[in-house]
Design a protein around this nucleic acid. Structure first.
Length: 432
RNA sequence: GUGGGCGUAGCUCAAUUGGUCAGAGCGCUGGACUGUGGCUCCAGAGGUUGGGGGUUCAAUUCCCCUCGCUCACCCCA
């Protein structure tokens, strides 16, 4: 095959899968409404500076994973690798600080990172993102975590591990950094190569290293929690208390460190036990300095992002329901070429009444049309041939029961609609 | 960016220790008396065995390169 294929690391979400995504988005949308978050649509590319300053120059994401290019006017633009920076940019640019606070916003869409593709890791991947900007109340942290857990609960996700930590603020971070560096100084030679590099640039990440040797060494290392300033410490206990109060099963992981520089205080992650190495299904936290780092006034904020591919993957792994896939209500069958025009007219008639319907466009035989009708998932086959035209009727066959009768053509739509609503009621009855 | 595994019809896979026309199931298309699907039966279409090069009388099977997939490192959603 010499035809063009999709670039590495991206994939097509085809109909057999897209309806599952729809379900995830529906649950997300409903939950957003329940929690008072409103949807925004943000651009897929931004000024490169937004990310280099917002996310952090020394982060892996910015250093080696961004899709950056110059546009025709020579501006450096970047395909967004994450959403928080854009969300805060939008908040500032649209003066949302003048509106009711905090601004509770959510969004969903594709993100782009140049990484080696792997299970649950793509170069274009979808995130759902929730941000609450403008408040430093610990209960907003709690709510942010709660939103994500509620979405996962509704989706039926199990085998999740929710971990939380506090990474401090500009006051306590340097204290911890120093304590950590002086602790590690003598052991520097034993650390893995990447951690040696991290020692000066980003020592915090050494705590997060999965290398067993590094883990061993950092076992006794000072954690962020022990170095928190009074304010951060108080905030963290309030968050934990709040989580407790709402009954969220969350454990503290002192080693949890997020990869993006803007996080302050609360950091949290939701891990799935049914994914491979890429097991983070959701990550987030507080970022009280993000707005400042991109040139705005000091503005506190908390949020999280969840990976849609990973959510769907986990759900599939766990055999969760995605609701019902969309199917047609009716398939119009034309027994004879002479009646096709009328059949098409009927098709549009019933579609206009809100019935999902289709017809053959391949010149198939009568028999084959029925076969297609059966395969389409439609409950009804509606036959309109010379006989029916002569009597102003249409023959309706219930493809599930095999029952068939002739109706006046004008009654067809209401017949199908009534059947559908009766079916829905029956399903609801079964649920009760 | 680094390593391991893999790459045969639309899909899932088989086969040739290098040698006649590369197979099956599912799917697709058509048929099994005239206007009725799902089951069954029959038939058909569809592959220069990811692409390129090399070794050989001969390669889908061996070697190299490349592209892609996959898993792990890394990173994270």
């Amino acid at each position: 095959m010499s035809s063009i294929s999709a670039p590495r690391g991206v994939r097509d979400i085809l109909p057999d899968e897209s309806w599952k995504w729809e379900y995830v988005f529906k649950v997300t949308r409903d939950t957003a409404r329940d929690f008072g978050y409103r949807e925004v649509h943000l651009p897929v590319f931004e000024h490169t500076e937004l990310f280099s300053r917002g996310v952090g120059e020394t982060t892996d994401v910015v250093e080696k994973e961004m899709y950056t290019f110059d546009d025709r006017a020579g501006r450096s633009l970047t395909l967004r690798p994450e959403l928080s920076a854009s969300m805060v940019r939008s908040y500032l640019e649209n003066r949302m600080d003048k509106l009711h606070q905090p601004a509770k916003l959510w969004s969903a869409g594709p993100m782009f990172r140049y990484e080696r593709p792997q299970k649950g890791r793509y170069r274009q991947f979808w995130q759902i993102d929730f941000e609450a900007i403008g408040s430093q109340d610990p209960y907003v942290d709690v709510e942010s975590i709660a939103v994500s857990l509620e979405i996962f609960r509704k989706l039926g996700l199990a085998n999740l591990e929710v971990v939380v930590n506090s990474v401090g603020c500009p006051v306590c971070r340097p204290v911890h950094k120093e304590a950590l560096q002086s602790f590690l100084k003598s052991k520097l030679g034993d650390l893995c190569e990447t951690c040696k590099g991290r020692f000066n640039r980003n020592p915090l990440r050494i705590l997060d290293c999965k290398n067993p040797v590094c883990r061993e060494i950092t076992e006794e290392a000072p954690d962020t929690i022990s170095c928190l300033c009074a304010e951060c410490s108080e905030h963290f206990s309030a968050v934990r208390l709040g989580l407790d109060r709402i009954g969220a099963a969350v454990s503290v992981d002192k080693r949890l460190v997020r990869g993006l520089d803007y996080y302050t205080k609360t950091a949290y992650e939701v891990l799935s036990g049914d994914l491979g190495a890429q097991n983070a299904v959701c990550g987030g936290g507080r970022y009280d300095n993000l707005a400042e780092s991109i040139g705005g006034p000091h503005t506190p904020g908390v949020g999280f992002a969840a990976g849609v591919e990973r959510i769907v993957l986990t759900m599939e792994q766990q055999g969760r329901s995605f609701g019902e896939p969309p199917v047609l209500d009716a398939y119009v069958v034309s027994p004879d070429p002479s009646s096709r025009d009328e059949s098409v007219a009927l098709l549009y008639e019933i579609r206009r009444s809100g019935i999902a319907a289709d017809i053959d466009y391949m010149g198939r035989s009568f028999k084959a049309q029925f076969k297609t009708a059966g395969g389409s998932g439609a409950v009804f086959a509606c036959v309109l041939g010379p006989d029916e035209i002569a009597t102003g009727s249409v023959t309706v066959k219930n493809l599930e029961t095999g029952e068939q009768h002739q109706l006046a053509r004008a009654e067809l739509s209401s017949f199908i609609i009534e059947f559908k609503s009766a079916k829905v009621k029956k399903q609801e009855g079964n649920l009760l």
